[in-house]
Design a protein around this nucleic acid. Structure first.
Lengths: 211, 211
DNA sequence: GTCTATAAACGGATAGAC
DNA sequence: GTCTATCCGTTTATAGAC
């Protein structure tokens, strides 16, 4: 709690992820942090800058924990597996606030929009390039690579909308099922070999949807 | 244009879909309709009710054009195909405003939230039941049916975020690729047989991402 | 039906005391 | 650093003229 600025960012990200940027007032954030509205302005520039910093942090996470490791894998199929499993793993662990960057682009200033869009595009291109590489190896299904890329992102990013840490689905089960679904969606025949330890549980579980 | 109330609903849905509910003001809607803010209050109760009516209409569309036809199909695999293809087809044709119902739940009154959530759950259960039926036939991959249902919804609903009517991807190509991806994600072996006419174009096309 | 005018509340942000 | 008080623009919504 000593890094109060960081604390404000985390709390704001959580609230904005649940209610949306526009529907979140600085008062709500201040209350959740335990300060007054004027008090948090000692740590932040303003509301838009708060959102930009949150989005930037989210892209930092993606670049360090997903894109970085993925680029070290030369084999396309394994690289795709790394991307899918590491990104979903991050969402399950860190929480959905990481994906607030998807929407809310229109709330940013044009300059900030360009910055974030550029970083998002680099991620998109990494995935699409991987799929095109798979296509040249005959491993991609008969689908448009761009459509396939969007579908993968849809599956991945949607995870933050329904997964609940306090739900009945264990993270390992969710990750294993998800990986199976996502890879088989695009690959003609997805081989095994997760980068994560094998999951030995066999229980079928259901989510509690609170949305 | 004679049904001015209906016109207001359509215009409001379009703007709210692009900017979000909270970020959309009644003034913007009024301007887009060609009236003053006070003018449109002659036709609507208020902002929240406007959102509720839009969401209700979206659920009407899903129930009539997707769930209705799907329930008439007894064979699980074909039923799933009908659900996927008809829902995506509606989004590509009608536009993304139909999916505004996904988010923005928190903007509704508790009573309205319950109403919409109940209808959404019925749709969710239809898909999950279909997947469980497939599991009993040995056609479902080794995945949690609930996770698979969420993944399907993620792919489908995400479509409205990236598909642009004025983009380079033709609706038929998008639909064919999408159907291939979604069905192979969950089915051990997806047979052919779209309910829509076969697509004979072979051109590879790329989307123009404006987001 | 549609407008102007305005009420009443809330938004982000700042000034200045302590 | 954190507060109270306040500025000022915007918001939803309504009153009442035409």
């Amino acid at each position: 709690m000593q890094d109060r600025a960081g604390h404000i960012y985390r709390v704001a990200a959580e609230i904005m992820w649940r209610r949306g940027y526009a529907a979140t007032s600085m008062n709500e954030i201040a209350d959740a942090v335990g300060l007054t509205k004027a008090g948090i302005y000692h740590y932040i520039r303003g509301k838009e800058d708060l959102l930009f910093k949150i989005m930037s942090f989210a892209m930092d996470v993606v670049e360090e924990d997903v894109m970085g490791p993925a680029r070290k894998v030369s084999e396309a199929e394994q690289r795709l597996r790394v991307i899918v499993e590491r990104h979903v793993n991050r969402i399950l662990e860190v929480g959905g606030a990481v994906t607030i960057l998807l929407d809310e682009m229109s709330a940013l200033t044009p300059s900030h929009q360009r910055t974030i869009r550029s970083r998002k595009r680099a991620y998109f291109d990494l995935v699409r390039t991987t799929l095109e590489q798979l296509a040249s190896e005959g491993k991609l299904r008969d689908v448009d690579p761009t459509v396939a890329t969007f579908c993968l992102f849809g599956m991945i990013l949607w995870t933050s909308r329904w997964y609940r840490k306090d739900g009945e689905i264990k993270p390992q089960d969710a990750l294993r099922s998800f990986s199976e679904l996502a890879l088989n969606a695009v690959l003609r025949s997805a081989a095994g070999g997760s980068q994560f330890p094998a999951d030995t549980t066999t229980s079928t579980q259901k989510a509690i949807r609170t949305q």
